[in-house]
Simulated scan of single mutants.
Amino acid sequence: MSLAAQTHGFLTPTGVEIAFLLVGLVTFGAALVTVTTRQLVHAALWLVVALGGLAVEYLLLTAEFIAWVQVLIYVGSVVVLLLFGLMLTKAPIGRSPDADSGNRWAALTVAVAAATALVWVVVDAFRATWIDLDGAAAGSTKVTGASLFQNWVLPFEALSVLLLAALVGAIVLSRRAKATAAASSAAADAPGGRPAEEGVR
């Protein structure tokens, strides 16, 4: 038995476990605010907090490579892409009534069902799995990088194409909005577009 086990006991939480729990609660709260707020910009910023909390959780699990990938790809790319999309499409900064579709109970039902299925799949898949703590660290940069660039190259590249497609879609939507606004302005400036002024003349 190790010194840590003799000091803390089997069920006594350590400092890392307490920090893991606290960061998990903050992450859960940020995720909850992200999906319940009606302000799109605030939702994006709270998403940064939620994804950053996940990165801290990975660090506490000594999976430093996954933690920095979380920061670089999700916080540094996905959220920035989301903010660019909000700016290019001129989304309202304040409260947006369009952000509430009125299907909260249906969304909650789907979310609970998906979470239940995910937990069941993970528990069933790793029920008889044992981790060799004396072997090489599974979350180290060398092991994870080798697995990523040997077995997961295609999904990694597909993710980059998906991000590019989202950015191109935001640009197309912004240009279409500008074209619609220009057409409306041209129609208003046409000779028949100002009947009030003609009446005054």
Rank of each mutant, 00 (worst) to 15 (best):
A107F: 07
L83S: 00
K142Y: 03
K142M: 05
V122Q: 11
V121L: 15
R95T: 10
L167C: 04
A138I: 11
S160P: 01
W130C: 12
S147R: 15
S77K: 07
D132F: 07
F156V: 10
L148G: 00
V80A: 04
G102A: 02
S96T: 14
R95E: 14
A115I: 02
L167A: 14
T109G: 14
P97Q: 06
V122H: 03
R104T: 08
G139A: 02
Y74A: 09
V79A: 01
L86N: 01
R127A: 15
F156E: 05
A117R: 10
D100S: 05
L167N: 08
V110M: 10
R104H: 13
A114I: 13
L118D: 06
V153E: 12
G94C: 02
M87H: 14
A99E: 09
A111V: 04
G169A: 08
T129D: 08
V112H: 01
D132R: 11
V119C: 07
Y74D: 09
G139E: 01
A136T: 11
I131N: 12
S140F: 03
L163C: 02
P92K: 07
V75N: 08
A91H: 04
V71W: 02
A125C: 10
L162V: 06
D124M: 11
S147W: 14
G139Q: 03
T144I: 03
A146V: 13
S101K: 09
T129N: 04
A166Y: 10
V71T: 05
E157D: 09
A166N: 10
V71A: 01
T89E: 09
A91Q: 06
A106S: 08
T109D: 03
L162W: 11
S101C: 04
W68Y: 15
V79D: 09
V80T: 09
G139K: 07
V75Q: 07
V168C: 11
F126Y: 14
T141S: 05
V123I: 14
V75A: 13
V69K: 01
T89R: 13
V153T: 14
F149L: 11
L86W: 03
V153H: 07
D134M: 07
A136C: 02
A138D: 04
V161L: 15
L82M: 11
L86C: 01
V122S: 04
D134F: 06
A125D: 14
G102W: 08
A128P: 00
E157S: 08
L108A: 14
V79H: 03
A114S: 06
F149N: 11
L133D: 10
